[in-house]
Nucleic acid binder design. Structure first.
Length: 878
RNA sequence: GGGCGCGUAGCUCAGCGGGAGAGCACUACGUUGACAUCGUAGGGGUCGCUGGUUCAAUCCCAGCCGCGCCCACCA
C-alpha cells in the first residue's frame, strides 16, 4: 500500500541503486541494437553542482532515458576534466592556508598534492550528478589525465607537430601576471572601464622646440616605445616620416614610420608604438622592423630594460610616475576622460598584459577548414540552427591557438630540448632520447619542456579518447561519432569547435551529428549566476525541498529554445504538486483494486470511456515522442502534464467512479483499463520523472523495471469515442459553469455523474435545484438533441421530474444581467466571424477546412445567441 | 563597431499566419474514503510602439523604443 504522502527522498534513495546494480545504465557493446551515444561534457573535477549543470545533465538524461526506451543501445559516457588552472588554484589556496608556496614544494611534490586532493574530493560532482538521477554508464567514467587519455594527448601533439600544425613561436600572448601563465584569447574578458587618455609631446630630433603629440591610455608603456606611427596620407606629419623623435624619460632615439594602421581621425593621428606590449603595435613593429623592448617581468613589474627610477614599480605605480614626470617636463599636453575596454583574466580577475614569450601554438585555421565545411554541408547540425552563425563567425576568423600554459597541473608538453636547443617532440622520454641520439650521434641529456597544455586541448579529444583511441577498440568503432552533444552556448568556442577540429582531423568523421545548444540559467535580472554575485540557486537544495523529479520536470518545461531561463521556485512547486497528484491517483487506483493485467488488450475495450482513454494515451505517446525527437522538452512536459492531471485524473478517473461503484463486468474492464492507462502514463513520464514513475510502476504490479520498458505502443482510437466524450465534457462543463455562476447554495450541490451504459454516458443530476438550473439554461448552452448522440440529453431531461419555480432558487436580476452580458459577448463573436466569412478573399484563399470551421462556429454562435435570448425571455416570464 | 536573442495576464513563462494559453498569485464556492501539495467556477491581456506584406498578423518583413548576451586591436 502506498504511503499517504509522497516522499520524494525515500524513492530516490530506493531506485537509483537498484537501476545501477541491475546494469540498466550500461552500454552493451555486443548488442545488436542501434547505438545511441552522448558524450557527457566532463565537469571540472573541482566543481560542485550548480543549476546550470542541473539543466544540461538533466537534458542529457531525458534523451538517454528516452532512447533507452526506444530500444537503442545507449552509451552516456561520463567523466571529469582536470581543469588545469582551476584545480591548481584550488590546491594552491589550500596550501596557502598552511603557509606553503607551491614553488617551495617543487613541481613533483605539488603535482602529488593535487592528485591527493583529487582522490579525496575530486569525485564530489559525480556523486551530485547521481542525485540528479543521471543514468550514465559510470563504470566507464574517465578523467582527462587518465593514462589512456594522456597517451591520446601525447599522440595528438606529436602527430600535429610532425604535420606542422603545432609549432613553437615567439609572439605576444595574453599574459596573466597573477597566475604567471599565458592564457588564450577566450580566457580574456574585455571589461569596459572609465579611464583617461593622456596626450604626450615627443620632441622631434633636429627640430628644436617641435613635438609630435601622441595619445595613449597606457602611459607606462612609453618606457618600451620604439617608434611613432603616422598615416602615410596624413599631411600633418608627412614631413617628419623617416625622422626620429627622442623618447622622453628614456632618451631613446626612435623612428617615425608611416603605416596604414594609424588612423588620422583617432587621437592626434600619431600613435606611439610599443611592439612588445600591444597586439597592434606588434604587427606594425614587424612591418617596420622596430625594436621590441620588453619592459615588464612575469609579474608585470617594470624590469631592467627601463630606466633605473622606474625599475621594480608595478604597472599602476609606473603609470603615476610617468605621468608626473612628463608633466614636470612640460610634455603632458592634455588629459581627457575616456572609456575603454581593458582585458582581464577570467580566472584571476587581474588585468592581462600582452607579453612577448615563447609559446606553443596550434594552427587552428587549417584545422578549422574541414570543421566549417562539416557544418555547412550538414554533417553536423546545430539545434537551434542560428547558433551555426556564431560557430561560423568564430571559426572563419580563428587565430592561432596558444596551447602552452605555465602551470604544473596538466598534460606536460611532450617536447625535449637538447644541449643546443634542438627540440625533440616524441611520445615518451625514451623516444626522445632515441631521437636525440640519432640526431647527435651520441646519447645526450635532454630537458623536457616545463609547460603543460591548455585544459581544452585534452577536452577536444574527449569524443574519441574516452573510447580508447588511438587503439582500435570495439567501443570506438561502435560509439563514434556520437549522436548529440548537449551544451550551453558559452562553450561553443572553447570546446565544441575544438572537438570538431580534432575529431575530423583524427577520426575522419565529425564527433557528433547534432549539437543541441540549450539556454543558460540566469537569475531574476537575467545575469549569469555565479558564486561571487551570490545569486546562485543550489539544485541540491531544490531537490531536497521539492524532490528530484519535480526539479527535472521543471527544467524540462522551461527548456524552450532560444531564451534564457530565469528560474522561479514557484514553478518547481507547481510541478512538485503534479507529482503529488499522480501519487494520489496511483493510491486511488490501488484502493480500487486496479492492477496491471497482462492479458488486458487495450484495443478490445467495450466501453466508450475506456476506448477513449486508450486513444488519448496513444495521442499523448505520439506527441511526447515527437517532442523528444525534436528536443522540445517543454512540449513533452506540457503534454504529459495536461494528460496526467487533466485527461487522466480530472476526467477519466471521475467518469469511471460510477462504473467502479456499480461493479460487474464493466467495472472489471475499467479497472484493467485504469491500471493500463496509468502504467502507460508512468512509462511516458519516466524519462522526465524517473523515480516517481518507477515507484508507482512497481506498486501497480508492473513487470520488470520501468527504466527498461519499451515506449508505449497504444492503439489509436478509431471508434469515434473521442468525439462522444468531447461532447460529454462540453455538457458537463456548461452545467458546472451554470451552477457556479448562479451561486447555488452548498446544499444544492450538483453531483454530476456519468454512468456508462450500453450507449453513451448519461448525465444524472441529483438534486431538484440543479434540475431547475439546468432546465433554465440547458436550452441556451448550444447543445441540442440533434448534436448529441441519440438519447443523451433527452435522458437527462426525462429525469427532471421535479421542477421548482426558478425564483425560489436564483436571483433573477443577477441572472438577467449575466444572460445579457453573454448575449453581447456572443454577438461580438458573431460579428467577427461574419465579417471574416463575408470577405471574398477569405473564402477564396483560405484553406477549405478553415473556412468550414468558421462556418460551423458561426452557426454555433448564432444558435447560442438565440437560445440565450430565449432563456432571457423565459426568465422575464417568471 | 559587428552579431544574436528577448519584450504575451500581477509574477515566471509557453505558443508563433486563420477562435489569446499554462503554472503561481487573486476572487467565490466546496473537504462524510485518491489528492487542501486538493476540487469546481471566475476575474484579469488593443500579445512593446509604428509602418509594410497578406483575404487574414501576437506570429512574417522594416524601422523605432526598452532589456540582455556574444564577438571585436583601436590610440
Amino acid at each position: 500500500m502506498l504511503e499517504k504522502t509522497y516522499d520524494p527522498k525515500a524513492i530516490e534513495e530506493k531506485h537509483y541503486p537498484r537501476w545501477e546494480e541491475a546494469g540498466t545504465f550500461a552500454a552493451d557493446v555486443g548488442s545488436g541494437a542501434v547505438p545511441y551515444t552522448i558524450m557527457m561534457p566532463p565537469p571540472n573535477v573541482t566543481g560542485s553542482l550548480h543549476i546550470g549543470h542541473a539543466l544540461t545533465f538533466s537534458i542529457q538524461d531525458f534523451l538517454i532515458r528516452y532512447q533507452r526506451k526506444a530500444a537503442k543501445d545507449v552509451l552516456w559516457q561520463p567523466g571529469t576534466d582536470h581543469a588545469g588552472i582551476a584545480t591548481q588554484m584550488v590546491v594552491e589556496r589550500q596550501l596557502a592556508e598552511r603557509q606553503i608556496n607551491r614553488r617551495d614544494l617543487g613541481r613533483d611534490a605539488f603535482v602529488e598534492k593535487v592528485w591527493e586532493w583529487k582522490a579525496e574530493s575530486g569525485g564530489t560532482i559525480i556523486h551530485q550528478l547521481r542525485s540528479l538521477g543521471a543514468s550514465a554508464d559510470w563504470p566507464r567514467e574517465r578523467f582527462t589525465m587518465d593514462e589512456g587519455l594522456s597517451a591520446a594527448v601525447r599522440k595528438v601533439f606529436v602527430d600535429l607537430h610532425k604535420q606542422g600544425l603545432i609549432y613553437r613561436d615567439k609572439r605576444l600572448v595574453n599574459w596573466d601576471p597573477k597566475l604567471r601563465t599565458a592564457v588564450s584569447d577566450l580566457e580574456v574578458q574585455q571589461i569596459e572601464q572609465k579611464g583617461k587618455i593622456w596626450h604626450f609631446r615627443y620632441p622631434i630630433e633636429g627640430d628644436e622646440g617641435r613635438y609630435v603629440v601622441v595619445a595613449t591610455t597606457r602611459p607606462e608603456t612609453m618606457l618600451g616605445d620604439t617608434g611613432v606611427a603616422v598615416h602615410p596620407e596624413d599631411d600633418r606629419y608627412r614631413d617628419i616620416v623617416g625622422k626620429h623623435v627622442i623618447l622622453p624619460l628614456v632618451g631613446r632615439r626612435i623612428p617615425v614610420v608611416a603605416d596604414e594602421y594609424s588612423d588620422p581621425e583617432k587621437g592626434t593621428g600619431a600613435v606611439k608604438m610599443t611592439p612588445a606590449h600591444d597586439f597592434n603595435d606588434f604587427e606594425v613593429g614587424r612591418r617596420h622592423s622596430l625594436e621590441m623592448i620588453n619592459i615588464f617581468d612575469a609579474g608585470a613589474r617594470v624590469n631592467e630594460n627601463a630606466p633605473e627610477p622606474y625599475q621594480g614599480l608595478s604597472r599602476e605605480d609606473a603609470r603615476k610616475k610617468v605621468v608626473a614626470d612628463m608633466e614636470a617636463l612640460g610634455l603632458l599636453e592634455a588629459v581627457e576622460d575616456h572609456a575603454n575596454v581593458v582585458p582581464h583574466g577570467d580566472r584571476s580577475g587581474v588585468v592581462i598584459e600582452p607579453w612577448l614569450t615563447d609559446q606553443w601554438y596550434c594552427d587552428a585555421a587549417t584545422l578549422a577548414k574541414p570543421a566549417i565545411e562539416a557544418v555547412e554541408t550538414g554533417k553536423t547540425v546545430f539545434v537551434p540552427k542560428n547558433w551555426e552563425n556564431t560557430y561560423f563567425e568564430w571559426m572563419r576568423n580563428i587565430q592561432p591557438w596558444c596551447i602552452s600554459r605555465q602551470l604544473w597541473w596538466g598534460h606536460r608538453i611532450p617536447a625535449w630540448y637538447g644541449p643546443d636547443g634542438t627540440v625533440f617532440v616524441e611520445m615518451s622520454d625514451a623516444d626522445a632520447k632515441a631521437a636525440a641520439e640519432a640526431h647527435y650521434g651520441e646519447a645526450v641529456d635532454l630537458i623536457q619542456d616545463e609547460d603543460v597544455l591548455d585544459t581544452w586541448f585534452s577536452s577536444a579529444l574527449w569524443p574519441f579518447s574516452t573510447l580508447g583511441w588511438p587503439d582500435k577498440t570495439p567501443e570506438l568503432d561502435r560509439y563514434y561519432p556520437g549522436d548529440v552533444l548537449v551544451t550551453g552556448f558559452d562553450i561553443i568556442f572553447f570546446w565544441v569547435a575544438r572537438m570538431m577540429m580534432m575529431g575530423i582531423h583524427f577520426m575522419d568523421e565529425v564527433p557528433f551529428k547534432t549539437v543541441y545548444i540549450h539556454a543558460l540559467v540566469r537569475d531574476a535580472k537575467g545575469a549569469k549566476m555565479s558564486k561571487s554575485k551570490g545569486n546562485v540557486m543550489d539544485p541540491l537544495d531544490l531537490i531536497d525541498k521539492f524532490g528530484c523529479d519535480a526539479l527535472r520536470f521543471t527544467l524540462a518545461a522551461m527548456a524552450a529554445q532560444g531564451r534564457d531561463i530565469k528560474l522561479a521556485e514557484s514553478r518547481i512547486e507547481g510541478y512538485r504538486n503534479f507529482a503529488t497528484k499522480l501519487w494520489n491517483a496511483a493510491r486511488y487506483a490501488e484502493m480500487n483494486g486496479c492492477a496491471l493485467d497482462p492479458s488486458f488488450d487495450p484495443a478490445a475495450c467495450k466501453q466508450t470511456v475506456n476506448r477513449w482513454i486508450v486513444g488519448e494515451v496513444a495521442a499523448t505517446a505520439e506527441a511526447v515522442s515527437v517532442a523528444f525527437e525534436a528536443y522540445r522538452f517543454n512540449d513533452a512536459a506540457n503534454v504529459l502534464y495536461q494528460f496526467g492531471w487533466g485527461t487522466f485524473c480530472d476526467w477519466y478517473l471521475e467518469f469511471t467512479k460510477p462504473i467502479l461503484a456499480a461493479g460487474g463486468e464493466d467495472a472489471a474492464e475499467t479497472k484493467a483499463a485504469t491500471a493500463w492507462a496509468l502504467g502507460e502514463l508512468l512509462n511516458m513520464l519516466s524519462p522526465l520523472m524517473p523515480y516517481l514513475a518507477e515507484e508507482l510502476w512497481e506498486n501497480l504490479g508492473g513487470e520488470g523495471m520501468l527504466i527498461n520498458r519499451p515506449w508505449s505502443k497504444a492503439p489509436k482510437d478509431t471508434s469515434g469515442a473521442a468525439e462522444e466524450m468531447n461532447w460529454v465534457v462540453r455538457l458537463i462543463t456548461e452545467v458546472r459553469s451554470i451552477r457556479s455562476e448562479m451561486n447555488v447554495p452548498a446544499a444544492a450541490k450538483i453531483d454530476l455523474r456519468l454512468k456508462e451504459a450500453n450507449d453513451l454516458s448519461r448525465a444524472r443530476l441529483n438534486t431538484h435545484e440543479d434540475l431547475v438550473l439546468k432546465l433554465a439554461r440547458l436550452g441556451s448552452i448550444g447543445i441540442d438533441d440533434g448534436e448529441a448522440p441519440a438519447g443523451s440529453v433527452q435522458s437527462v431531461l426525462d429525469e427532471a421530474t421535479i421542477i421548482l419555480p426558478i425564483a425560489d432558487v436564483i436571483d433573477i436580476s443577477a441572472e438577467r444581467d449575466r444572460l445579457t452580458k453573454d448575449i453581447a459577448k456572443t454577438e461580438a463573436e458573431i460579428g467577427k466571424i461574419d465579417k471574416k466569412l463575408s470577405n471574398p478573399g477569405f473564402v477564396a484563399k483560405a484553406p477549405e477546412e478553415v473556412v468550414e470551421e468558421n462556418r460551423e462556429r458561426l452557426a454555433e454562435e448564432q444558435a447560442r445567441r438565440n437560445k440565450l435570448a430565449a432563456a432571457l425571455d423565459r426568465l422575464a416570464a417568471v
